[in-house]
Computed example of a mutant assay.
Amino acid sequence: MLSSQRVRLANLSPKISSLGAAGARLKHTLPDLPYDYNALEPVISNEIMQIHHQKHHQTYVDNLNATEEKLAAAVAENNLSQVIALQPALKFNGGGHINHSIFWEILSPNGGGTPTGDLLELIKKDFGSFDNMKEELTQASVGIQGSGWGWLGYSKNGRLKIVTCANQDPLQPTTGYFPLFGIDVWEHAYYLQYKNVRPDYVKAIFQVANWEKVGERLANAR
């Protein structure tokens, strides 16, 4: 049993060693918001934005750094069992950091309206119209059981698709789709303002959608 474990660790060692080294070298930090906490009112309140950013996102960052430190130690000790045991925490907190870092950028106090350019043309091609895409993304996001994210994703074959992810699962590693626009439907994202009426929050968030940034993300994905 120990012999087979050593073989598996030897096969994994180049990957996990580089991951552990990266965790030891780098510390993730909470990104600054590109606007003030009250800038998205009345769609998202000042209080929600402060708690969401300073408390929830900061917790994902702190836990991600702590998990990577433990991972580096496990790699250094050739402890394969611990390396495997740390993967759920790495995925959850790493996903939380990735998802929220995208979320802040794709919202704007000057947002709303309709996409333009290549983004709009691709939306029309794959959904028929912008309104159809909004409706499909709204229904998918509202329909998530428990906590998660609704995403407009871009695939390697050049198509757009509405995809949902549970909890903090990051879209691209989980589904292969590049995240363009996402809606956080964890209760901490809306409950203080919208209570249990998730549909109102999801519909309102399109009023602050930063379609210019989403268009930039599409260009980068291509």
Results as ranks from 00 to 15, higher is better:
Pro109Asn: 07
Pro115Phe: 02
Phe178Arg: 12
Ala89Pro: 00
Val163Asp: 12
Ala89Asp: 15
Asn196Gly: 09
Thr67Asn: 06
Asn210Glu: 07
Asp118Ile: 03
Ile205Gly: 03
Gln139Arg: 14
Lys70Arg: 13
Asn46Pro: 00
Pro115Lys: 01
Gly158Phe: 13
His97Pro: 02
Phe206Pro: 11
His56Lys: 05
Arg217Val: 10
Glu212Cys: 00
Leu171Tyr: 09
Gln87Tyr: 11
Leu86Pro: 12
Gly113Lys: 04
Lys70Ser: 13
Leu30Pro: 09
Arg198Leu: 14
Lys203Asn: 14
Asp32Phe: 10
Leu33Cys: 03
Thr114Val: 15
Lys15Cys: 09
Gln139Tyr: 07
Gln82Thr: 10
Gly20Leu: 10
Lys27Ile: 10
Tyr154Arg: 06
Leu30Gly: 03
Ser4Glu: 14
Ala204Thr: 11
Pro88Ile: 03
Leu192Asn: 13
Pro179Tyr: 01
Gly150Pro: 07
Thr164Tyr: 03
Glu47Ile: 01
Asp131Thr: 07
Ala209Gly: 11
Ser4Cys: 01
Gln5Val: 15
Phe206Glu: 08
Thr67Leu: 07
Ser81Ala: 13
Thr29Lys: 08
Ser155Phe: 10
Lys134His: 05
Phe178His: 11
Leu120Glu: 15
Cys165Leu: 13
Ala39His: 00
His57Ala: 02
Val43Leu: 05
Leu152Cys: 10
Thr116Tyr: 05
His97Ala: 12
Ala85Lys: 11
His52Ile: 08
Asp62Met: 02
Glu47Trp: 00
Leu120Cys: 09
Val202Tyr: 04
Glu136Trp: 04
Ser147Ile: 12
Val83Thr: 12
Ala189Leu: 04
Arg8Thr: 14
Gln168Phe: 08
His97Lys: 00
Lys134Tyr: 02
Trp186Ser: 01
Gly153Ala: 05
Phe206Tyr: 12
Asn196Trp: 05
Ala221His: 01
Ala73Pro: 14
Ile44Met: 12
Glu68Trp: 13
Asn65Ser: 00
Arg217Cys: 01
Leu122Lys: 14
Leu30Val: 14
Leu2Met: 10
Ser129Trp: 02
His188Val: 12
Pro31Met: 05
Leu171Gln: 06
Val185Trp: 09
Leu90Tyr: 06
Tyr35Glu: 06
Gly176Ala: 06
Ile84Tyr: 05
Ile162Tyr: 07
Thr67Ile: 10
Asn99Met: 02
Ala39Ile: 04
Ser45Phe: 02
Gly176Tyr: 06
Gly95Arg: 09
Pro34Glu: 00
Ala24His: 07
Ser17Phe: 02
Ala140Phe: 07
Gly176Ile: 13
Asn132Lys: 04
Ala140Ile: 03
Glu135Trp: 10
Ala24Leu: 07
Val142Lys: 08
Asn196Met: 08
Tyr201Met: 01
Ala204Ile: 12
Ile205Glu: 05
Tyr194Arg: 08
Ile102Gly: 03
Asp126Glu: 05
Met49Pro: 00
Gln139Val: 03
Gly95Ala: 06
Gly95Ile: 15
Ser147His: 14
Leu26Glu: 15
Gln207Ala: 10
Arg217Met: 07
Arg8Ala: 15
Ala140Trp: 01
Trp149Gly: 01
Lys195Ala: 15
Leu119Val: 04
Asn79Tyr: 03
Gly23Lys: 03
Ala221Thr: 00
